[in-house]
Structure formats: C-alpha cells, structure tokens
Design a binder for these strands. Structure first.
Length: 112
DNA sequence: ACCGTGACGGCGA
DNA sequence: TTCGCCGCCACGG
C-alpha cells in the first residue's frame, strides 16, 4: 500500500477509527455513543475525526449517525449528494429508514 | 499559546 | 416539533 504523505493521522483519530470499525454491517451507532466508548467528552470531536476519515468506507464512518437518528454528514458535507451516498451505503447493508428520513430504531447498535 | 471552526448533543422557548 | 444557544474538545493556522 502507498503511504499518504499529505495527511497526518493523529492518535485521537486512530482511536475513533478503531472503534468505528467495530460497528457491524447493517447496524449504526451515534457520534455520542462512539465518543463515550473512547472516553471522549465531545461527540463533536468524534465528528471532526470522521469528517477527515481517509479510509472510508473501509473504516465504516457511514454507520455513525446523529443521536436523533438523522444521518449527519459524509465526506465533509452535511447535505447534498455526499449524504445521499451515505444513505445508499446503509441501505445496501440492510438498514431501513422511516418515513421521516431517520434510521429505524431497531438498527441502532451499542458498543459491547 | 491563542483562537476560530465543526459530519454533535441537550435544553429551553 | 423546529430553532437557537451554548458546552463540549481536537485541530490547524
């Protein structure tokens, strides 16, 4: 594999990505839950790490959504085609959305 | 070292 | 229910 000399992956980002990888296909978790898992006091900081995730979708950051079960962003965007791709990826994994555009509650997953 | 920014979250209006 | 405000904290300039 070719080393990316442009981006420096911080230790914090590694923690976020490592936890993110444990989310099973067909399930989602929230920024806040992931933050709690790695003992970070700010869901926002998790979002910032995922925002620049250079390993998507191998590191499945598309499985991390907001606490209200809305999608949140993808590839740095909070709306538009990028976010629709996030939805496509999830649907491809079997995740179903309700009529209000939120992920159906039964697909939420908690860290073990 | 300081400061603005951001894929968040919770609460009150 | 939606909206704004504010606390949270990692990061880059």
């Amino acid at each position: 594999m070719i080393k990316d000399t442009k981006t420096h992956v911080t230790s914090f980002q590694k923690k976020v990505y490592a936890a993110c990888r444990r989310i099973p296909s067909g399930k989602v978790t929230t920024y806040g839950d992931l933050a709690e898992e790695i003992s970070c006091g700010a869901a926002r900081a998790v979002g910032q790490a995922l925002r620049v995730n250079p390993f998507a979708p191998e590191v499945p950051c598309h499985r991390v959504i907001k606490s209200d079960r809305r999608l949140g962003g993808f590839h740095g965007r909070v709306s538009g085609p990028e976010v629709r791709r996030k939805k496509d990826l999830l649907e491809k994994e079997g995740v179903v959305f309700d009529n209000t555009g939120r992920v159906a509650a039964k697909y939420l997953w908690r860290f073990e």
